[in-house]
């Protein structure tokens, strides 16, 4: 095949067609998501969340979902919208403050919560995308996070200490939002909206990307791609983005 690629002939390679992963909208993108599945979401707080797919999931109404996401949104935005509809059975997150409905469901036992240190969460997602079943991290050693987990000693960086073994996540679907993407699924994120999103995208058995701007192959500089399209299966341009700010902190011009 290499030979054929190097000497393209019309009968083998048509230079003017490209792989196309585009779906029409969020409803089409989330097809195949069923009750009880595990979904991973990109975003940090409300920054860089897949707003359109979350809205479509609320409409779809599939239940008993396990959601992997650093945060759980706020009461009326982000994953908070799925919580309001009681679609989430279990949240796997590092920080879930600022959400009264979350608190209510957790205290009443309706919602199961697994708290994972932030770096562990990020790295467990990354590991999945790198084809590694587990990682070793010092985070959580000696704490309740370590209960029931394998601990191993390693000498690293000149020091011997304990590390926890943590498994890679294997979500059924990963759902992320990027700034720009092309029809082949290559993604570029904007500023800190990158956060967990490339890692989440890498982890999914099926990965859905919604983008602010969808372009043709060749319009994105290959050197500037943050996540290569091999990790993305479905892509579409989001209808609109609210981009709500969670903590608006400013200073006055002097």
């Amino acid at each position: 095949m290499i030979f054929l690629l190097m000497v393209p002939e019309k009968k083998y390679i048509n230079q003017f067609t490209y792989m196309n992963k585009v779906v029409n909208n969020a409803d089409e993108a989330i097809k195949g998501i069923e009750d009880g599945m595990t979904l991973a979401f990109g975003g940090f707080g409300l920054c860089g969340i897949p707003e359109n797919c979350i809205a479509a999931l609320v409409k779809l109404g599939k239940k008993n979902l396990t959601c992997i996401s650093n945060n759980a949104g706020v009461d009326d935005f982000g994953l908070g919208l799925l919580l309001q509809k009681r679609l989430i059975k279990k949240m796997i997150s590092s920080y879930v403050g600022e959400n009264a409905e979350f608190e209510r469901q957790m205290l009443s036992g309706e919602l199961e919560v697994e708290l994972v240190p932030q770096g562990t969460l990020a790295t467990r997602l990354m590991a999945a995308g790198y084809g590694m079943p587990a990682i070793f991290t010092p985070a959580g050693v000696g704490t309740e996070v370590a209960v029931g987990k394998e601990v191993r000693k390693f000498k690293f960086n000149g020091v011997e200490k304990d590390y926890l073994m943590e498994y890679a996540f294997e979500p059924d679907f990963s759902i992320v939002k990027a700034w720009k993407g092309d029809t082949m699924g290559n993604l570029i994120f904007r500023l800190t909206a990158r956060n967990f999103s490339p890692l989440v995208a890498m982890a999914g058995k099926i990965t859905i990307a919604e983008v602010e701007e969808l372009v043709a192959p060749g319009e994105l500089d290959p050197q500037e791609i943050h996540l290569p399209g091999i990790y993305v299966h479905r892509i579409f341009q989001g209808a609109k983005y609210e981009k709500r700010i969670e903590q608006r902190t400013v200073r006055k011009k002097q």
Binding site: C47, G119, A122, L191, T192, S197, E246, Q247
Partner: peptide
């Protein structure tokens, strides 16, 4: 001048200084 795509770990809007770099959480 706040930008919803530019926040810190406390989810507060921030700015970047010259020479700044952005990367994923892993």
């Amino acid at each position: 001048e706040e930008d919803p795509d530019l926040i810190n770990a406390g989810k507060q809007t921030v700015t970047l200084l010259p020479g700044a770099a952005i990367f994923d959480s892993a």
